[in-house]
Write a protein that binds this DNA or RNA. Sequence first.
DNA 1: GCCGTTTTCGGCCCGACTGTTTTCAGTCG
Length: 581
Amino acid sequence: MGNEDIVRLFEEFAVLLELTGANSFRVLANAKVARAAEASTIDLVHLARSDPKALSNIDGIGGGSAAKIVEFVTTGAVKELIELRTQVPAGLPALLGLPGVGPKSVRLLWQERGIVDLASLESALAEGRLQGLAGFGPKKIQNLHDGIAFLKTAVGRVRIDDALVVAESAITHLRDAGVVDQIEFAGSLRRGKETIGDVDLVAVAANAPRAMESFCSMPGVAKVLVTGPTKSSVRMEDGIQVDLRIVPEHAFGAALLYFTGSKEHNVLLRGRAQQRGLRLNEYGLFEDDGLDAPQDRRAPLASRTEKELYEALGLAWAEPELREVRPLDEVCGHAPLVTVADIRAELHAHTTESDGSMPLLELVQRAKDRGFHTLAVTDHSRSSVQANGLSIDRLLRQIDAVREAEARVGGIRVLAGSEVDILVDGSLDYPDDVLAQLDLVVASPHASLRQAPDLATARLVRAARHPLVHILGHPTGRLVNGRPGLELDMHAVIAAARESGVALEINAHPARLDLRDLHARMAIEAGVPLAIDCDVHARDGFDVLGYGVQVARRAGAGPEQVINAWDAARLHAWIAARRGR
DNA sequence: GCCGTTTTCGGCCCGACTGTTTTCAGTCG
């Protein structure tokens, strides 16, 4: 049991309360508890056992929710939720996934027409039983048909790299068409989340209708969902939704701020505006005269840039990656975050010797061309048969080849290393006397990724305590949108890493991003250094660096906390110290 | 249900678009 179970608990509360017609602020409060639990680096299950009163000190969690968490942790269930489940058909929440269908519509379908799930909605549609239902005209009924078809093929949240391709091609299309003067992507893509719900674009256009027309007819658009003078949404053939907002030039900063979110960050900013007798919306910051739409009557106090808006609220600018469920004083004016330009070393790379596609010399040359001062060659170890892992003999020969390559290319330190498998019991895939001959050891789990949580934690803790390990590579083995990976007690793994002085990897590949943002933040809070590595396999393998850097930024990491951002002397000293040299 | 340098009660973000409406509720982000 972990925070994610508490998240699910309150998400279910929120949905069921919504469908039973509960007070919408109560619904919102439960959803807020779920968000708070999701964003917390505190182990709430542990806290519920050790210091239950402290639960309600967390912002968004009050006495009622704290009691529910304690009940859940101690008994494994919450009576009130079990009672709620008996009131709502199990298939009903799925209807909320239909575009344009919210709680009011679902309740109407349920109570007036006895619809309890998607299947009964389909048959009701087929039999024409929705005729005469208040608010359900022909278009709404057609949208239900379309929505069911959409749900059957829905992609859900997509990986950040897939969303970025869509965003960049839309931006290129609109720029090339000459219909926008300024355009940026906002939303969770700008905040660097690992998955993206939909792509948000904010633009300035002299001729807005023309820009909207160009947007709605760009290549790859499958369906225009909504279109108006300032806002349009389309669904692309690959299922990704793209929204375009067009705002006046003077409001570009306010719109970018507003549409970058997160929702929770915006709520905090608006709350701060309210305290000061001001109103914040996507057009700017205004004096609050108690009437609606101040932007129609007043000049804004600030609106042109994000920085100007934060300053007008008495705050320093916040990096987009930090604009999540966190207090404003933590994220505004945060110490500088690590950047791609700070990264000067790659400590996890493969060659043709195992499953990479670049020969050793080319890998070294490309690392040097990127301006790196250090590259670690870390091919797979012998147990990774599917990846052509190196036998001990091949590994020892590779050490000589690495020395030779370093001398031949020149101007870059090349470390002989290995990405050694962490075996199922936490032991490593080469004996210590072999590992001791390497400059750098990255230890990673590759097999048995469905291990029970306690065994998995013991496995990673044992690897973290191994005196010859430098870095734990992709510690959970998860794949974004692919497989969950090991369910580690991350507090225990981080504690072991801190004790033994091991760094934790943020694997930068967008399919991995492992550690994920929250775990990287927990590592930083514990004082454990991070390694941002591309896990290079191919010629373009270094290009994923930005995704890893963004995860580190979301964790609040500065260059100080990232070993690849250290200068050569410091990094080499750290690596050597792990060998007692 | 949560929260408080206006408040322990009375608020709780707000604007755009759609569809079914004759003036607005519902949904979305």
